[in-house]
Design a protein around this nucleic acid. Structure first.
Length: 800
RNA sequence: GCGGGUAUGGCGGAAUUGGCAGACGCGCCGGACUUAGGAUCCGGUGGGCAACUGUGCAGGUUCGACUCCUGUUACCCGCACCA
């Protein structure tokens, strides 16, 4: 039989389209399973072979769950707002809506060609006003609950393009497009108080089935730390407040550092004798991002503030104050007490500026390197703390600070609030109006969606404002509260907004009155299995958990955590082992693979390429192995005869079903396929198989290579579609062998392998072992010291 | 720099979680069929003639270590306005 994949795939894709076997049922009494993959950004380049990896994986999971009797929701949609589309629109003077439509059509046809079992009746698009109506609605609820606020924030601004740039568009400190200098310009931005949920975003992880590295990365990103805030008095009379996690080392604080943006720089202006020097340093620092500041730690920079000094409240000594960009304005109080003996960054700085290093925790040589161990050291040179362990000293210091009224215990988070404004066109308009009398007022809910107005040009304005600010008809409006003349917010939302709740919309995508009905949400949520890239761990995953928790708090959602299980796939790299990218010229287009080998081979290869969680390079040579396997599988039709079972195959088939069933659940798709390959090889060795058995094999194959499986199933006269037939069960007793191969070691070296009855006792095993010639040869004339027998595994005889 | 990962034949990877290292596939070598083979089928394939030796590197624990511990090197991902 010729494997005509083009004919087979077209045929079955058409049948699936017509019979719609993959649509989720609206019957809320059935056991449900919600599997989710991250919806793509429909870029102009189309799909590359990295996309189908997670899609195929969860398609396999979904197909198997469906066959196991679950009502499965496996939806797909488009995260279509964003920069590349907007930049393309600017360059080519095409409406981003048109660009999006075009890209979506391309993506969809590419996905369809892969035979993925998505429920296309629930397709969503974040740029659809019927969708973003609810994105805006959620924002308004956040606003009403006081979780949205305005704050002055620094943005990247290209002086030549006159455009606010995304961090990604700033390369090496200059504008990616024109190469001009990028400055940090302060703008008033909408912020969302995700920090208010910081604790719950940590504790909520507890019962969840997330892979461990996702949990730890989220916890570290939120960065909860227990420390203290301490007031240092200054020669100016003000108190300078610092945050520290090591208040036990207060006696060793020999200088202080404040962030360049710290408000006191301005406040102390008249007392600072070297103000111009300070000012210059501040301007320099403004040109660096937080990342660059902390990255280039090799050489610390800073300037002493001359004319103002601080007093260490523990020692009573006067100490100098510096400004330096290794202290970030956004973390803690924007000021630190520097303890060079016990902090590496302070140590580097102190060495460079010749500042005193005083040891206060014994255990290292602080003139050589900072001693940061908190487990072993004891306090010294620290008055009332001397002799205490670090943990005890922290407690004692907090008590001391509280009693004296110069400080207190303080919990801090690294997590920062979410900057929610973008000075761009292609995003959801922020539905707020600014009225001179009433301040910021929400657009009434019945006026949602607040649609994007048509503009002439998508280019941001000279001043960096969003292009919406030029549409005066749109900007000028009446205050919904008092009716006076007012102006609309012209910033739009970041792309993260639409993706922070899309999984809720899939539950009830055509609902006109709610973001989704309560019943649908209650039935489908939480998502049972969410797979996505590791790169989304700290932003998208936290943002969407934050929104879900908020919606739970306002009773719009009945579960506090949106995802019961989260896994992550590895990247597919180019042939050269590097990340696939247009600029590297190593991108592989799935269309070519589908065309040359067929979708089933493509799917199989993507799953066989390696450990699902690990990155793997693409290898065009290896693909044919998967195609050969499918051909050999199909050719079994030529030898399949009769009903019932073949004795030589029975055990193998039960083992196979067991292995594939559990391998899908544990994402070991590669070994599941290897087991199927071995099975086919075994059938050819045995030389016969019944039609019933081949039908079972086709059922097991069907989640992986659904088109071929349907074709085999139909040829054998199977009833209906194999895609929704019952997943086969296995008999545990038929998966165990009565005799096992056991390696026999002498002094840890394998000397022979013996067949041992499974039920044999230790004595019986040993009598078989000692009867063996090779064992005799290896132990002859030596004394047996120890005999280790691990039933079913290994025998080790230690001799002298 | 900070946070999270990874390292096994020529290549992708497997190893029941402390028990035969290299399953399965690619590639390669040999053979069959053939006018032909970049098709198919059959056999072989970590290194070494061998004793042996091999899981990034250096130690350690153990009857036994790819797996656990200590140290070390290299590479990959993220770092908040890319998605």
């Amino acid at each position: 039989m010729v494997y005509d994949y083009k004919r087979i795939e077209a045929k079955w894709q058409k049948i699936w389209d017509e019979k719609k076997p993959f649509e989720a049922k609206q019957d809320f009494t059935l056991p449900k399973y919600y599997s989710l993959v991250e919806f793509p950004y429909p870029s102009g380049q189309g799909l590359h072979v990295g996309h189908p990896r997670p899609y195929t994986a969860l398609d396999i999971v979904s197909r198997k769950k469906r066959m196991q009797g679950y009502n499965v929701l496996f939806p797909m949609g488009w995260d279509a707002f964003g920069l590349p589309t907007e930049n393309f629109a600017i360059k080519n003077k095409i409406h981003p809506k048109i660009v999006t439509e075009r890209n979506v059509a391309r993506f969809k046809s590419q996905l369809k060609a892969l035979g993925l079992s998505f429920d296309w009746s629930r397709e969503i698009n974040t740029t659809d006003p019927d969708y973003y109506k609810w994105t805006q609605w959620i924002f308004l609820q956040l606003f009403k609950e006081g979780l949205a606020y305005k704050k002055e924030m620094a943005v990247n601004f290209c002086t030549s393009c006159k455009v606010v740039l995304a961090n990604e568009e700033v390369v090496g400190g200059v504008c990616e497009r024109c190469g001009s200098a990028v400055i940090r310009k302060v703008k008033s931005q909408w912020m969302l108080k995700i920090t208010e949920y910081a604790d719950r975003l940590i504790s909520g992880l507890d019962g969840l089935d997330f892979i461990e590295r996702v949990k730890t990365q989220q916890i570290n990103w939120i960065g909860k730390s227990r420390g203290a805030e301490i007031d240092f008095s200054t020669t100016e009379g003000d108190k300078l407040r610092v945050y520290t996690t090591r208040c036990d080392t207060l006696f060793g604080a020999t200088y202080m550092v404040i962030a360049p943006e710290h408000a006191y720089v301005e406040k102390w202006k008249n007392s600072i004798s070297n103000y111009s020097e300070i000012e210059e340093y501040r301007d320099q620092a403004a040109r660096k991002s937080d990342f660059e500041r902390t990255e280039l730690v090799k050489e610390k920079t800073g300037v002493e503030i001359k004319g103002v000094r601080a007093i260490n409240p523990a020692t009573g000594k006067e100490i100098p104050i510096f400004i330096s960009d290794y202290v970030l304005a956004g973390y803690g109080t924007g000021a630190i007490m520097a303890v060079p003996a016990h902090d590496e960054r302070d140590w580097d700085f102190a060495k460079k500026f010749g500042l005193p290093i005083i040891e206060v925790v014994a255990g290292g040589n602080v003139q050589e390197a900072a001693f940061t161990d908190v487990e072993t050291g004891k306090l010294v040179n620290s008055g009332f703390l001397d002799g205490l362990e670090v943990a005890e000293a922290k407690e004692a210091m907090v008590r001391f600070l509280t009693e004296k009224g110069i400080g207190e215990e303080k919990i801090n988070f690294k997590l920062r609030d979410w900057v929610f404004s973008r000075q761009r066109y292609w995003g959801e308009p922020i539905p707020l109006v600014e009225c001179e009398k009433c301040g910021w007022v929400a657009v009434p809910e019945e006026e949602l969606p607040l649609e994007l107005p048509e503009v002439e040009s998508y280019e941001p304005t000279e001043t960096g404002e969003s292009p919406l600010s030029l549409i005066t008809d749109w900007v000028n409006c009446k205050c919904p509260k008092c009716g006076a003349a007012a102006k609309r917010e012209t910033d739009t939302m970041p792309q993260w907004a639409g993706s922070s709740w899309y999984f809720l919309r899939y539950c009830d995508p055509h609902n006109k009155n709610e973001l989704a009905s309560k019943e649908a949400l209650k039935y489908w949520m939480p998502v049972d299995w969410y797979n996505g890239g590791m790169e989304h761990t700290t932003l998208h995953l936290l943002y969407s958990r934050f929104w879900s928790k908020f919606l739970y708090d306002i009773n719009a959602l009945s579960c506090p955590e949106p995802y019961a299980k989260r896994t992550s796939h590895g990247m597919i790299l180019g042939e050269n082992g590097e990340k696939m990218s247009k600029s590297r010229g190593n991108v592989v287009n799935p269309d070519d693979i589908v065309n040359d080998y067929g979708a089933d081979t493509m799917r199989l290869y993507e799953m066989f390429i390696g450990d699902f969680e690990q990155a793997a390079p693409w290898n065009p040579q290896s693909i044919k192995g998967c195609k050969r396997f499918l051909e050999r599988f199909m050719n079994l039709l030529d030898i399949a005869e009769g009903e019932g079972s073949t004795p030589e195959l029975e055990k193998h088939i039960h083992k196979l079903i067991k292995k594939v069933t559990s391998d899908i659940d544990t994402m070991k798709f590669n070994t599941a396929i290897a087991a199927m390959m071995t099975m086919v090889n075994t059938v050819y060795e045995v030389g016969k198989i019944t039609k019933d058995e081949l039908k079972t094999l086709a059922t097991v194959l069907s989640p992986f290579a659904p088109h071929v499986a349907e074709e085999i199933w139909e040829t054998l006269g199977g009833e209906g579609l194999v895609s929704i037939t019952k997943w086969p069960e296995y008999d545990e007793s038929k998966t165990v062998d009565d005799t096992v191969e056991m390696p026999v070691q002498v002094c840890g070296k394998v000397r022979t392998v013996l067949m041992i009855p499974k039920a044999a006792s230790k004595e019986e095993i040993l009598s078989i072992v000692y009867a063996d010639e090779k064992v005799k040869a290896a132990t002859d004339g030596k004394t047996v010291i120890k005999e280790i027998v691990v039933p079913g595994k290994i025998i080790n005889i230690v001799v002298k």
